[in-house]
Design a protein around this nucleic acid. Structure first.
Length: 861
RNA sequence: GCGAGAGUGGCGGAACUGGAAGACGCACUGGACUUAGGAUCCAGCCCGCUUGCGCGGAUAGGGGUUCAACUCCCCUCUCUCGCACCA
C-alpha cells in the first residue's frame, strides 16, 4: 500500500494522539535522571512569529532527543502575560487587557500545538493570574522586611509616550526601548529591589558558569562594572565640609589641579547659593538638565562647566583647587564629584584647555618626555611618576597600592570598590502588572499588606484612557482601604511591578505549577527539577532578564525556598530570523505576499530588494508561521529552521530553502513507500551477524556511522544542520543501493533497519512524519517514547582508508590502505606510488612525514 | 573610543584537537522517465589553462611559524553585536 505524503492529516493525527495519551506529561521520579529544558516563554502578543518557531523548534529537538535518551524531561510552556501592549490594545480597541491577553494566549497555544512541540501543557503558567502573582507579592513582603525592597525618591526615566517609568536598562541611547520616544526626567517615589546586595555573588558566578556563552558573561560583567579604587577626601579651603571623590587613579593624585562636580549634584547649588555666581550657575544647571535629554543628537557633548567660586585643597600637595560644575560628570556614579587630572585624563584635559586651568605632569612618558605647555592630549599610558613627592621615579601602576595606603595613613582616603550596577527600579505607573502589596497610611507611612490578605488582586473595572498617571489611582474601590497597622483610612499603592519580576522565577513555578500553599513552590519538586539544564532564548535578554533571574534565584535561595545558586546551567542564545526587505517606490515596504514576480502587487512597479534584516513588522519582511504550516506543514517548518544554519547564528529566510526541506521530507517518505511492501514481513537486521552482500555491508556500516555522527552533533554541539546532513547522506546512499530481490531477506532486513534508523534519527526534528512512517512499517508504540538508536563502534569503523600522498605539501596522489596500516607500510607505499614518483624523480628525499590514517608527506629538495 | 565575535563557491553553510578545502542543501547545466511537468530519478557544478589525463591558483588582504595553516602568531581592511564621558 503506497500513499502520498499529506502533512496535515498526519500532523493533526499525531498531535491529537500525543495529547490523548499525555505523552509529554511528566512527574518527579527520583529513580530517573531529570533533564529540565526551558525556552524563554513568550509574551502573548497575538500570534507566534518565526522567532518563536525557531526558538521552540530548537528546544523541542533537544527535549525529544533527551527523552529518547532515557531522561525524565521537563519541558514546560507558559505566558509572560503582563505588560504594556495589553494596555495599549485596551486604549486603542476598548477591550479589557485580560480579555485581549487571554484571547491571544488561546490563539498562540493553538499555534504551538500545531507545531507539534512536546510541552507538558498541564504545567502551563500565565503570569497575569492571581494564582501566579500572589506568590510574587509574598516574596515582595519578605523582601520589604529584609530591606531588599525599598522606596526611594529619585529622578527616573520617563517616557512621555508610554506614560511610564523606565529602568536604566530600558533606555537605549536616550530613547525608550519599546517605542523609541525620547526619554525625559521625572521625580517620583519609586520602589527598588536591592540587587546590589548580591552584586559580588552575581559577579563571582560569572566565572562559574561554563555552560554560558562567553559574550553573555562579558556583557553581564560589564554591566555590573566593578572597579577598584579609592575614596579620597579633599578639604575645603574655607574649612567647611570636605568633598569626597571616587577614583581608580590615585597614582595621579599629585596632578589633581581642580575639582569637578556633577551639575545635578546638590553641592553645586549649595556652593553657589548666595554668591554673585548663583544666577549663572543656576542657568548652567538648567541647561545641563536639558542637554541630558538630547543624548542621541550628539555623540559626545562638548565639555562645559561653570566655576562655583569655591576652592578645595589637594590632599597631598595642599594646592588650592578651583571647584567647577561640569556637564560630563555623572551624579549617580561614585560620589558625583571627580578630581580632575588634566594631564592624564582626556576629558579633564579638554576641560582645562577650555577654561585655562593649571596642568602638572605626574606620569612621565619614558620614550617621549611630556611638557604641560606643548601637550595636545592627555597622556594615559603607563610611565614613571614625577612631581609626586615620595613616589617619584616609580612606575605608576606599581605605586597604586602604596599611594592608596599612604592616603589612608594620613586620613585622606580609603580603598573602596565601586559598581556600575544600580538597584533595580521595579515601579511602573501602569495598570496591567502585579500590584505592589503596600498600603500608604498618612500616619504610619508605607505598611505591608498582611500575608493573609494576599493576593492583592488587580481590579477588573478600570477605565483605560491612555492619559498620564496610573489608571489604578482612579479606581477608588482599589485605592481606598484601611491601614492594617492603625486601622485609619489609607491608600493602596498604585504602582505595579516591572514584568521582569514575573520572568525572574517562572521557571521555579513550572516545577509545581498548581501548588497553592505558601510560598507557591513545593520545595521537594523544585529541588528535583532545578536548576534548568538547558535554557534557550534570544540574545536580547543577555543582560536584563538573565541578571534579574539570577538575582531572584539567589534571593529565593536565601529565603530557603529553593536550593540552587544559579537558575540556568547551560544557556544557548539562538540567532535572529532574518529576511531581505522588499520595497515599492510608491507603496513603501511590502509584505512578501504583496510581491509577485518581482513587482508590486498594487501598482506593478519593480520592487527594490533591500538588505537582509531581522524580521519585523515595520520592515514587513516577515513570514507568517501560520501560512507556512498551511502550505508545507509543521515538519517542514521545523526542518528548515534547523537545517538552514546552526542555532547560535542568524538564520536567513529562503523560500527555496523551505522547498528544499519539503523535498527532502518527500524523499524520505517516498523511499519508505517504495520498500514498504517488500519489507512488510522482514525483521530488522540481526546485528550479531554480517551481511553477505558487500553493498549491504557498506550500507550497514553507513547507518552505524550516521547514528554516531548525529548523536555527537546533537549531544555535544546542538549542530542540527550537520546532523541532518548526515541523515541526508544516509538516505542518498540508500537511493543508490541496487534494489534487493524480494526473496533476499537478509538484504531487505538491512534496508529495513536503514529506514528505521533514518526515521528514529529524524524523529526529534520531524516527529509527525516519522511517527507515521514507523506505524506504517509496523512499529508499535510511539517513537516519542522509543529509544534513541545505538551504534557499534566496531561496525562504524572504516576498514579501508584513503591516504593522501603529498610531495612538499601538495596532494599528488591518493591510495587505499587497510585501516590499521603501520607507518612504515604507508611510507613504503607512498614512495613507490607512480604519481608521487613523478614528483620525486631527480630530487633528494629530505624527510617523510607520516600521519597514521591520514597522509604521507614526502619532502624533497 | 573600548570589548567580543565574524569574513570560506552564485547562495545557505561543512571541515572537532594544524593533516584531502567546499560535506549537505539551494540555484544552475545536462540526461532519463513522461501527453506534460515547476514532479521524480541519475549525473555535472570553486576559478584559470588544458578541455582526455594533467598543471597552476583560491578560505577578506599582507607577512610569519610549520613537512603541512580556513585552523596558530603579527599587521591591515570590512561587517555584526555589546558598552559608551563610570573618573
Amino acid at each position: 500500500m503506497k500513499t502520498k505524503y499529506n502533512p496535515h492529516r498526519i500532523e493533526e493525527k499525531w498531535q491529537r494522539l500525543w495529547e490523548e495519551k499525555r505523552t509529554f506529561a511528566v512527574s518527579e521520579d527520583p529513580q530517573r535522571k531529570k533533564y529540565y529544558l526551558l525556552e524563554m516563554f513568550p509574551y502573548p502578543s497575538g500570534k507566534i512569529h518565526m522567532g518563536h518557531v525557531r526558538n521552540y523548534t530548537i528546544g523541542d529537538v533537544v527535549a525529544r532527543y533527551k527523552k529518547m535518551r532515557g531522561y525524565n524531561v521537563l519541558h514546560p510552556m507558559g505566558w509572560d502575560s503582563f505588560g504594556m501592549p495589553a494596555e495599549n490594545a485596551a486604549i486603542e480597541h476598548h477591550i479589557h487587557p485580560s480579555v485581549w491577553t487571554n484571547q491571544n494566549i488561546e490563539v498562540m497555544k493553538e499555534q504551538l500545538k500545531r507545531m507539534g512541540f512536546s510541552y507538558d501543557w498541564d504545567r502551563e503558567v500565565s503570569t497575569c493570574e492571581p494564582a501566579y502573582y500572589r506568590w510574587e507579592q509574598l516574596f515582595f513582603l519578605w523582601m520589604y522586611e529584609k530591606g531588599l525592597a525599598y522606596k526611594k525618591t529619585g529622578s527616573v526615566n520617563w517616557c512621555p509616550h508610554c506614560q511610564t517609568v523606565l529602568a536604566n536598562e530600558q533606555v537605549e541611547a536616550g530613547l525608550c526601548w519599546r517605542c523609541g520616544t525620547e526619554v525625559t526626567e521625572k521625580h517620583l517615589d519609586q520602589w527598588f529591589f536591592r540587587i546590589t546586595a548580591y552584586v559580588e555573588e552575581l559577579l563571582d558566578y560569572c566565572d562559574k558558569l561554563p555552560g554560558w556563552p562567553e559574550r553573555v558573561m562579558t556583557m553581564q560583567k560589564n554591566w555590573i562594572g566593578k572597579s577598584y579604587g579609592c575614596e579620597l577626601v579633599f578639604p575645603m579651603a574655607d574649612g567647611s565640609e570636605p568633598i569626597r571623590v571616587f577614583t581608580t587613579r590615585q597614582d595621579t593624585i599629585y596632578g589633581a589641579t581642580f575639582m569637578l562636580v556633577a551639575a545635578e549634584h546638590p553641592l553645586t547649588m549649595k556652593l553657589a547659593e548666595g554668591t554673585p555666581r548663583e544666577q549663572e550657575v543656576r542657568s548652567f544647571v538648567e541647561k545641563v538638565r536639558k542637554q541630558d535629554k538630547m543624548k542621541r543628537t550628539s555623540d559626545y557633548y562638548e565639555k562645559e562647566g561653570v566655576f562655583l567660586g569655591a576652592y578645595c585643597l589637594n590632599p597631598v600637595t595642599e594646592q588650592k583647587m578651583p571647584i567647577y560644575a561640569a556637564n560630563f560628570v555623572l551624579a549617580d556614579y561614585g560620589t558625583g564629584c571627580v578630581m580632575a587630572v588634566p594631564t592624564h585624563d582626556q576629558r579633564d584635559f579638554e576641560f582645562a584647555k577650555k577654561y585655562d586651568l593649571p596642568m602638572v605632569v605626574v606620569i612621565q612618558n619614558p620614550d617621549n618626555p611630556l611638557d604641560e605647555k606643548t601637550m595636545t592630549e592627555a597622556y594615559v599610558e603607563e610611565g614613571i611618576l614625577v612631581n609626586s613627592g615620595p613616589f617619584n621615579g616609580r612606575k605608576n601602576l606599581q605605586a597604586l597600592e602604596d599611594i592608596a595606603e599612604h592616603l589612608e595613613s594620613i586620613g585622606r582616603g580609603r580603598k573602596t570598590i565601586e559598581y556600575r550596577l544600580r538597584d533595580w527600579g521595579i515601579s511602573r505607573q501602569r495598570y496591567w502588572g502585579a500590584p505592589i502589596p503596600i498600603i500608604n497610611c498618612p500616619k504610619c507611612g508605607a505598611v505591608p499588606v498582611p500575608e493573609s490578605d494576599l493576593p492583592v488582586v488587580l481590579p477588573m473595572d478600570v477605565e483605560l484612557a491612555g492619559e498620564g498617571g496610573s489608571p489604578l489611582e482612579r479606581v477608588s474601590s482599589f485605592v481606598d482601604c484601611l491601614c492594617p497597622s492603625c486601622g485609619g483610612p489609607a491608600k493602596r499603592e498604585t504602582d505595579t511591578m516591572d514584568t521582569f519580576v514575573e520572568s525572574s522565577w517562572y521557571f521555579d513555578r513550572y516545577c509545581s505549577p498548581h501548588h497553592d500553599e505558601a510560598p507557591g513552590l513545593d520545595k521537594k519538586k523544585v529541588d528535583y527539577w532545578m536548576p534548568v539544564d538547558q535554557y534557550i532564548g534570544g540574545i536580547e535578554h543577555a543582560i536584563l532578564h538573565l541578571l534579574y533571574a539570577r538575582f531572584y534565584t539567589k534571593m529565593l535561595r536565601d529565603f530557603g525556598v529553593i536550593g540552587v545558586d544559579e537558575p540556568f546551567t547551560n544557556l544557548l542564545t539562538q540567532g535572529m530570523v532574518c529576511k531581505e526587505t522588499s520595497r515599492c517606490p510608491r507603496h513603501g515596504f511590502l509584505y512578501p505576499e504583496e510581491v509577485q514576480d518581482g513587482v508590486c502587487a498594487h501598482c506593478g512597479e519593480r520592487v527594490i530588494v533591500g538588505k537582509t534584516e531581522k524580521m519585523s513588522k515595520s520592515l514587513k519582511n516577515v513570514v507568517d508561521p501560520g501560512h507556512l504550516i498551511e502550505e508545507y506543514g509543521a515538519d517542514t517548518a521545523r526542518m528548515f529552521c534547523l537545517f538552514a544554519s546552526p542555532p547560535e547564528k542568524d538564520l536567513e529566510w529562503s523560500d527555496q530553502g523551505v522547498d528544499g526541506s519539503f523535498r527532502f521530507l518527500s524523499r524520505v517518505w517516498r523511499i519508505v513507500q517504495d520498500y514498504i511492501d517488500d519489507i512488510a514481513d522482514v525483521p530488522p537486521f540481526d546485528e550479531s551477524r554480517e551481511p553477505a552482500d558487500q553493498e549491504m555491508k557498506d550500507l550497514r556500516k553507513k547507518y552505524h556511522q550516521t547514528i554516531r555522527k548525529v548523536t555527537i552533533d546533537i549531544e555535544e554541539r546542538f549542530h542540527f544542520n550537520t546532523a541532518i546532513s548526515a541523515v541526508m547522506e544516509l538516505v542518498n546512499t540508500l537511493y543508490q543501493v541496487r534494489r534487493p530481490g524480494r526473496d533476499d531477506r537478509e538484504s531487505l532486513s538491512v534496508v529495513r533497519t536503514t529506514l528505521e534508523v533514518t526515521i528514529a534519527l529524524l524523529n526529534p526534528v520531524i516527529p509527525h512524519m516519522t511517527e507515521e512512517l514507523r506505524q506504517m512499517m509496523g512499529g508499535g508504540g510511539t517513537l516519542a517514547e522509543a529509544e534513541w538508536p545505538s551504534y557499534n563502534e566496531e561496525v562504524a569503523r572504516e576498514d579501508e582508508i584513503t591516504i593522501v600522498i603529498q610531495v612538499n605539501g601538495k596532494v599528488r596522489s591518493r591510495i587505499q590502505v587497510a585501516a590499521g596500516a603501520a607507518e612504515d607500510e604507508m611510507r613504503r607505499l607512498a614512495l613507490e606510488d607512480d604519481k608521487a614518483q613523478k614528483h620525486i624523480e631527480g630530487k633528494n628525499v629530505v624527510k617523510v612525514v607520516t600521519v597514521p590514517g591520514k597522509l604521507v608527506n614526502i619532502v624533497v629538495r
